[in-house]
Design a protein around this nucleic acid. Sequence first.
RNA 1: GGAGGCUUCGCCUAGUUCGGUCUAUGGCGCCGCACUGCUAAUGCGGUUGGGGCUCACCGCCCCUCCCGGGUUCGAAUCCCGGAGCCUCCGCCA
Length: 422
Amino acid sequence: MIDLRLLRENPDLVRASQRARGASESIVDELLRADEARRSALQAFEALRAEQKQLSNQMRTVKGEEKAALVARTKELAAQVKAADAVAQEAEAALRAIHLAVPNIVEEGAPPGGEDDYVVMREVGTKPTIENPRDHVELGELLGAIDIERGAKVSGSRFYFLTGPGALLQLGLLQLAMAQAVEYGFTPVITPTLVKPEAMEGTGFLGAHASEVYRLEADDLYLVGTSEVPLAAYHSNEILDLPPGQPRRYAGWSSCYRREAGAHGKDTRGILRVHQFDKVEMFTFCRPEEAHDEHLRLLAWEEEMLAKVEVPYRVIDVAAGDLGASAARKYDCEAWVPSQGRYREVTSTSNCTTFQARRLQVRYRDEEGRPQIAATLNGTLATTRWIVAILENHQQSDGSVAVPKALQPYLGGRDVLEPRSR
RNA sequence: GGAGGCUUCGCCUAGUUCGGUCUAUGGCGCCGCACUGCUAAUGCGGUUGGGGCUCACCGCCCCUCCCGGGUUCGAAUCCCGGAGCCUCCGCCA
């Protein structure tokens, strides 16, 4: 949710943000009207209620006929209070509905436009020259690392088994990510992957992305699409100790589940787009004024991980129209995928400013001791999808795959994965 | 799954019998002031959170005693429903 005070003071800022996203500007005026309506309804209720309380206090001191008269008067007032309360509650609910629908205010400097209007910030590493590169599915089969067929047999399309070196590769990748996070002071966390509706809504995933989310009807729980959800909700309704310059940083490890409802026919081959994968996610709570710098730090840590797995990539500044509802700014790292001859997203870091924390009521005390809304940020440190880039970029002509130095300890010290015989 | 107990201001706690200045007592913690060579100790004062009016401050008002309903002129207190935690029993790991 955006800050309503900011909206009142500077509605044009919000309009400009909506324009940059290519989203509705009229919703800004709807929100302003709903805010106004709520406040006037509240004032009407409060005036009546104040009168009622005052009369109620007199009740103690009077007796007899005088009391009977007073009761008659307050009885009437009670009905009015009740009605005014109902109106105020309705106005509150109406405001909330619109409030939830308004996405975060885009950070200044984010490229305007849609999905294709991203700005390439830099390209890092050298693309390997491979003649007739095998794709990760073929390599995964040769190495006995990925079993797509049995994944489909057991669970359906977009499921897979990681086996042998594939399983080790994923575990190694995630452990490497965890190790790096811990080195930089993150608290490692293994999160629940089933969460209550409040957590899912609080992180902003039940808006436009609702159809992407698995829901367990019988238990009213949701399967998370990223550990961002449980991590953001971890401190919900809390007032944190958050001294300046000392953000709280968590590294969450979890399986992630996505329905991929809108992706029919897209990336159907391999493990690029799947219903279940594993991920290590960085998550920061900090003061709003520190969020911008923290965002760049998260990006730098992502790039450090990509350097460790020795994969060429580029960094893009995602356009406003392609940001999630919660994000004010987003940077993606895209790894080179030789079989496709293009870059594919492997990390994404978002600055959600106070948008998520406002919904989840995550606060800290400022210098005056007043509670203030914290800022939240997140960024990917490793996911199953990275295996695609690692296998393809490090493949050799005989179908073997060189293991990046940083991952070798996790693969029994092997520096190359050989195709299975037979 | 069955039975019982509990849930109050950051933490602990009083208040609920018998409804009325109860946002609510006391302690701890924290903040300010005083005292002290410093620290400690002591004394005095302040300290739930949210919202609205005013918005520069002061100030005023409303909501908030786990949540949602109800009874009542009036609910922390009475009634109904729900959630969470704890204990015991059963069941499964």
